[in-house]
Write a protein that binds this DNA or RNA. Structure first.
Length: 564
DNA sequence: AAATTAGCCCTTTTT
DNA sequence: GGGCTAATTT
């Protein structure tokens, strides 16, 4: 009991021990959100709640996995019975148990094929219609579910005994609502925890409500200031309405930031306060040290921008060139207080990555470019798996397939799934066991995207950086057109862009660099740029601006002459 | 059927 | 500028 609350601050303790009725925990960046959730689960268990009476829902496998890893050591039998994972995995579990054991999960590629057959055959139209159907499902627009294209698509899926990824939630919810057996099973649940509540979409909301009607206990954790996915259907109104939605709800704030320096916390707070649509809540740095100012560096072009990033990293690592060749030379690495993995370079759009990556290749600094490589990877896996089909021993073949498919992702929590798949498909023809195994692999699409154990500088979009932290963060392209992005027009869009930039800023623990290039190639043509409007929303006292430009000297000369 | 050319549009992205 | 696709040529 004492140890469960050990090391927690007062806000966190309250969040852990308030276990009756609905609770909203507003957890700003770096406030110990995951720790609090974990301790809360341990506390629930301590009060006599059983593992199988708790369900924790996350948006990404990464988040679910992180919690799993951190909580399992404290639990008997490796936490068996406690569900911690994505909405989709939770839905899948219900469906496999009660719906139809051998339905197939179809992936985007096949969805497109189906819609091609239903429309004029062009990819463009098919994509358009797929987005439309997915939107209907995720916004849970029941009235549009009578549209002819929707019905035709559903009919084909039904004939194929297939579900799409959105159906994992929809069909599971329908079962919960209509099937007594499932209701009985679900009603064993007593506590629902939902992470990242600000990014919930209407479908997920409906799903939660269905669960809540049976459990009466809900704990939502999130931070409106970090809502960056409204563009794909997340609705921040759910967060704003939590107290109205769930009778008797209590709201708590975690207000101590353990992650970032004083300057970074204060500067980012000044920025985010420009948003009108938000819940005001305090956020204070624990750190009292007088820290470095945020460095705003203006350079001539995007190549210079990349060079500056590399140079600043080299300065901190102590060594000079070609680390990959210098494995026996420990001097630089040994002296440094930094590891390469302490640095992150963030950008708004993926096409900014190339120039930055090239600069890293030139310098020899190890880097990991974090993006959705899984699609390419899975095609490779597919090809490789097909070569196993001809082997005579079926069980052996299946085992090979699973080894290969899951070996690539190499995640501990996949081992159980691997075993289950083996048992389930042991008696199926190999080809069928194969479109199914791949199907389930798709659910783990981005599980490998970021590897925290690799000692390399991380390069990624700001979106991908959510939930991560680094000693030193470089945000590149700090210009109008990129931050905020040019397509963001209305107040609502700009506020989301501001939140995105806020997420980027608050990834930094010690040092934050904002890089601004005077010129940049946009769709091939060079354009003059302006500093981001967000620059002017951060008080000057937090900033240290530097101007590095090749034109520098030429510009200054005429100015001086004019003085005489 | 393969090869070439002309036209198009350009975010962010999980499951 | 370049990746993708549809249209056109060979």
């Amino acid at each position: 009991m004492l140890s469960i609350l050990d090391g927690l601050n007062d806000n966190q303790k309250e969040a852990v021990t308030h276990i009756k009725g609905p609770l909203l925990i507003i957890a700003g960046p770096g406030t110990g959100k995951t720790l609090t959730i974990i301790r809360r689960i341990l506390y629930l268990i301590h009060t006599g709640i059983k593992l199988h009476e708790i369900v924790g829902l996350t948006f990404t496998n990464r988040a679910g996995q992180e919690m799993r890893e951190r909580i399992d050591p404290y639990l008997e039998k490796n936490g068996e019975g406690l569900f911690l994972g994505t909405f989709h995995m939770f839905g899948l579990n219900i469906l496999r148990k009660y719906y139809n054991r051998d339905f197939r999960l179809i992936e985007r590629k096949e969805q497109i094929e189906i819609l091609r057959s239903l429309t004029d055959g062009t990819l463009k139209k098919a994509q358009e219609q797929l987005n439309y159907i997915s939107k209907i499902k995720n916004l849970y627009e029941t009235s549009s579910m009578k549209d002819s294209i929707f019905l035709k698509y559903e009919e084909i899926l039904k004939n194929k005994n297939a579900l799409d990824i959105d159906d994992l939630i929809i069909k599971a919810m329908e079962l919960i609502r209509t099937c007594d057996k499932v209701r009985t099973d679900i009603s064993r649940l007593r506590h629902i925890l939902i992470d990242e509540y600000q990014d919930i979409n209407p479908l997920q909301y409906e799903f939660i409500r269905s669960l809540y009607s049976l459990t009466e206990n809900i704990c939502a954790v999130g931070d409106l200031d970090q809502a960056i996915y409204t563009f794909r259907g997340a609705d921040i109104e759910h967060f704003l309405n939590f107290e109205k939605d769930f009778k008797g709800a209590k709201t708590l704030f975690l207000k101590d930031n353990y992650r970032s320096s004083k300057v970074i916390v204060h500067a980012s707070q000044f920025l985010i306060k420009h948003n009108k649509k938000r819940v005001e809540h305090p956020l204070e740095p624990i750190s009292l040290e007088c820290s470095n100012k945020i460095r705003v560096i203006t350079v001539n072009n995007e190549y210079e921008e990349a060079k500056i990033v590399v140079k600043e990293i080299e300065n901190r690592m102590g060594a000079t060139t070609h680390y990959s060749l210098a494995q026996n030379d420990f001097r630089g690495l040994w002296d440094s207080n930094y590891r390469f993995s302490d640095f992150a370079v963030l950008f708004r759009t993926n096409n900014q990555a190339d120039i930055i990556r090239d600069a890293f290749i030139d310098s020899g600094i190890p880097y990991q470019l974090i993006k959705d490589v899984f699609y390419e990877e899975i095609n490779e896996i597919e090809d490789r798996l097909k070569t196993y089909i001809n082997e005579p021993d079926r069980e052996k073949t299946l085992s090979h397939i699973l080894d290969y498919a899951f070996g690539v992702t190499a995640k501990e929590e996949l081992l159980g799934i691997k075993r289950n798949l083996f048992l389930a498909y042991r008696n199926f023809p190999v080809e069928i066991a194969l479109k199914k195994i791949l199907d389930e692999l798709y659910l783990f699409k981005s599980a490998d995207a970021f590897n925290i154990n690799v000692n390399a500088v991380s390069l990624m979009t700001i979106h991908m950086s959510k939930g991560l932290e680094f000693k030193v963060v470089f945000i590149t392209g700090f210009e109008e057109g990129l931050i905020p992005y040019s397509l963001a027009r209305g107040e609502k869009d700009i506020e989301e862009e501001r939140r995105l930039f806020y997420v980027g800023m608050t990834r930094a623990k010690d040092e934050l660099f904002l890089l601004c290039s005077e010129k940049r190639h946009i769709h091939g043509t060079e354009k003059e740029t302006k500093k981001s409007r967000f620059f002017y929303e951060i008080p000057e006292k937090f900033l240290e601006s530097t101007y590095i430009s090749k034109k520098d000297k030429q510009k200054k000369k005429p100015k001086q002459q004019s003085l005489f």
